[in-house]
Computed example of a mutant assay.
Amino acid sequence: MAKAQNLSMTHAKKEDTKKYKDKKQVLFHDGTKLDIDVVFRPSKKQELGVDLLKLIREKIEKLENVDGNLLTDVLTSLIVKHFTSIQVKGLESFDDHLEMYKILQDNDYLSPILQAFDPIELQTTIENTIEEANKQMNKISDDLDRILESQMESRSELNEETV
């Protein structure tokens, strides 16, 4: 039986390269191309979730409503941003991501990109990201409820003292 070697960063990097180096190229009607990740890195999936929550929080802080369709469009934009070679600058806000989605869709880029992803990889990433976002939104909602309750109790105590 061969003796196991101690793990080194060199070995870990080699394994990382083997697992995540594969890209698929999408060629578009206008002669442009885009490389997409065949396997999604867990760290990129995590960044995707963090970015989605940040964008949702932005809308909540502005007291703006976010429906499911808009959220799906922004999530799709984030997936393209994180798992392709698309070059984006100034893509910071919810509305920026919504604009990116619309431009890609209106100019027939989005469908070929989404079709090029591994369907299982894409579906599980979407499901897991939405599930985690829902958990975080429930926590935020619970925190807001507690804050409101606390404020109501404080007002009630103040009213009782002044009576």
Rank of each mutant, 00 (worst) to 15 (best):
S111Q: 12
V66P: 12
T76C: 04
L63E: 13
E15W: 05
S43D: 09
Q25Y: 10
L122G: 02
E64Q: 13
L114T: 11
I56M: 11
G90R: 01
T129P: 05
L78R: 01
K102F: 14
E161H: 04
E161A: 08
N107Y: 08
I103Q: 14
E149L: 12
Y101F: 15
K23V: 10
L114M: 12
E92F: 05
I130A: 10
E160M: 02
V88Q: 12
E15D: 02
S77I: 02
E132V: 14
E61H: 09
D35T: 02
L158F: 04
D16C: 03
K18T: 09
V38I: 14
D118A: 02
V26N: 00
S156T: 11
V39F: 08
P112H: 13
V39Q: 10
E127D: 09
D67E: 06
D145P: 01
A4R: 13
V88I: 15
R41Q: 07
D118V: 03
E161P: 03
K24P: 03
I103D: 14
L70D: 11
D95T: 02
L71T: 10
S111Y: 11
F83I: 04
N159H: 04
V66C: 13
E160T: 02
P42T: 01
L52V: 03
D30T: 08
F94M: 07
F28H: 13
L75I: 12
D37S: 06
N134A: 15
Q105T: 05
V26H: 00
S111I: 06
K54G: 03
D143F: 15
H97C: 01
A2F: 14
